[in-house]
Design a protein around this nucleic acid. Structure first.
Lengths: 346, 346
DNA sequence: CTAAAATGGACAATCGGTTGCGCAATAGGA
DNA sequence: TCCTATTGCGCAACCGATTGTCCATTTTAG
């Protein structure tokens, strides 16, 4: 239970003042060579490490970044956290972690906790329920910058990182088209999610682009629950003309959808083929992996979000009057095809 | 960009001293009723919140707990984190998060970073490579308590939480026996993991318990990589007498093993049935879910680890001479059977 | 009516560093 | 030799709260 050595300890032993020790350790030019030597030598011997708490306290900074995500359990988010973490370590920042469990109320509480802890900044992926932003705008008052990722808000005066799913969806439709599929259905997510809106726009534009007719009967939505997805599938499977391909909102929806299809005697990926978003590594082990998937680069989104936050914080330090610029980073998604689908026989 | 109100701010406005404000806010008996009223009123108006950084700094505490795990991406660990997080929130502690990626070197670095940040305590699940504990024992010097979970060290002078896999494995063997299986193989993990040793002991004792002969040809090990598992499977499938059932080290091994088996024309869960450890929710979506699994309660392990840490920290506060007692919490695993296996026809 | 006790607050030290300012002592220039 | 730089270092304030000690009233008891 050794006491951790402090600057004072060193000062006393060397019979100099604490300020001298402080400056000697930071190589201040006004400190004589001999003194510097002795101080640094003793510091090493004692295994001195500056108390970052004390320093940050004086600097009125915590060097802690809050991160709020819906579910750590989702592979997408755990990868994002990894990205954030690695960028954070690089910048010597620390992560304060919280989950919203996709509930607005929990998100509000988490944000309040972060505020209380006086985080230097916040990175957040919004909950499914989030429809107002007062709890987040409140942070502006306290000068805590917020960077959104993936589940970003609609307002333009915010920093954000996301994957351009509009383009991704067009790619997915194009890939299906090129492989001979025409009657393409789509199970989308909740309407109010930006991600849903983008996908829908991409779907419509993608379909149109290939001179196909957009049939809204082929578009269903799910609240992302198993039941919601099954309802959507039920409707699609009851259409007079069965879809040849189904695009699902993400891999979780994909898994529920394919499981439901299989139960209802559909030859998954033969009779109807399935493609998806997210590209979870786990899907390769599933009974019915998607034949193509749009990779949304969660790790890079996390990294990027942290980079943006670091830039903002640095600008604040240098006292450059931060112009009201808002950083927006739009990552290009990439299509990953797992297997050539049967180009005929469907 | 309002300045956050401080105690001093309130003091100045009310023309009293900061100490009076401090005591008024904490309801100190020596402060007069009128003064208390005025102080608390103004504090509310200004939206005053105590600066926890400052308080913790004075208390020489950070209220931050370090958590180091191999991979956040593994469902087991992300669930554990959730458990830790919820317990942490309850106790008003904050989580500083790091991954070892199952490498000793990274683990050492992460521990050093935690030490530098002066965490109040550390919760860790050891990396696969960890064979020495000097980096962790170093924390004792600085009076930072360490609680291990799941991947716990062999030494007895440590606090730990884990699932009794010895018993779990016996249960699993018993379940197989009761369902008519006799020729039971086992793909174990790396020898040096405590978890492997326990499972092996459980396997041997479980087999013996039912008057079966232990045949070490039926026991293989994997380094947990896909390749390692495939090697193990290859050996098992080349035995003259094919096993009727295979117990795998965890669900990831299970998935690789069943995939390999399927590729080699084994009717998974018919010809050979598979049972496993971990009970990942995702397995229900896989092509070949295990027919039974030992749930290791990651969430509860995390929660429990945090509880133990809180107890230790509380004891330190109350200055009770901490007797050299080491908390060990052994959780009982539970067997989850998904489907009745075919009791004949294999 | 006076001495003692209770009441209500102010002062100042402290946690571990950082940093502006001032003061000697030495060095250099005229 | 005297005056001014320069060098080297100490003093003290500060970040935001907590807390022991002390002082000045007021109240109470004898």
């Amino acid at each position: 239970m050794d006491k951790l050595p402090t600057i004072k300890e060193i000062a006393v032993r060397l019979n100099v003042s604490v300020s001298t020790v402080s400056r000697a350790l930071s190589n201040h030019p006004r400190i004589g060579f001999g003194t510097k030597e002795r101080v640094q030598q003793l510091a090493k011997e004692l295994g001195y490490e500056p108390n970052t708490q004390a320093i940050f306290f004086k600097q009125k900074k915590t060097h802690v970044i809050g991160v709020i995500i819906p579910y750590i359990r989702e592979d997408f988010f755990s990868q994002a956290i990894s990205g954030i973490e690695s960028a954070a370590i690089e910048h010597e920042y620390t992560i304060l972690f919280g989950q919203s469990y996709d509930e607005l109320e929990r998100e509000i509480k988490a944000v309040a906790a972060m505020k209380k802890q006086r985080v230097d900044g916040l990175i957040i992926s919004l909950s499914k329920e989030t429809n107002k932003y007062t709890h987040l705008e409140a942070l502006k008052k306290y000068d805590i910058p917020v960077v959104y990722f993936d589940r970003v808000p609609t307002m333009t005066d915010s920093h954000k990182v996301f994957c351009n799913l509009y383009k991704g969806t067009i790619d997915l439709v194009g890939w299906l088209f090129n492989n001979g599929y025409r009657n393409i259905a789509f199970i989308n997510g909740p309407d109010k999610l930006r991600a849903s809106k983008e996908r829908l726009k991409g779907y419509i534009d993608g379909i149109s682009k290939h001179q196909l007719k957009v049939d809204m009967q082929l578009v269903e939505t799910t609240d992302l629950s198993k039941e919601g997805t099954e309802m959507a599938m039920k409707k699609l499977l009851s259409l007079k003309k069965l879809p040849q391909a189904i695009i699902t909102f993400n891999d979780y929806v994909h898994m529920d959808a394919t499981q439901y299809a299989a139960k209802n005697n559909i030859a998954v990926n033969k009779h109807i083929i399935f493609v998806s978003f997210a590209n979870l590594p786990i899907t390769s082990y599933t009974a019915f992996p998607p034949l193509a998937s749009i990779e949304q680069h969660p790790y890079r989104q996390g990294e990027k979000a942290m980079d943006i936050l670091m830039t903002i914080l640095k600008n604040k330090d240098t006292q450059e009057l931060v112009p009201d610029t808002y950083y927006t980073e739009e990552l290009a998604p990439s299509l990953v095809a797992y297997k050539q689908p049967l180009s005929s026989g469907h």
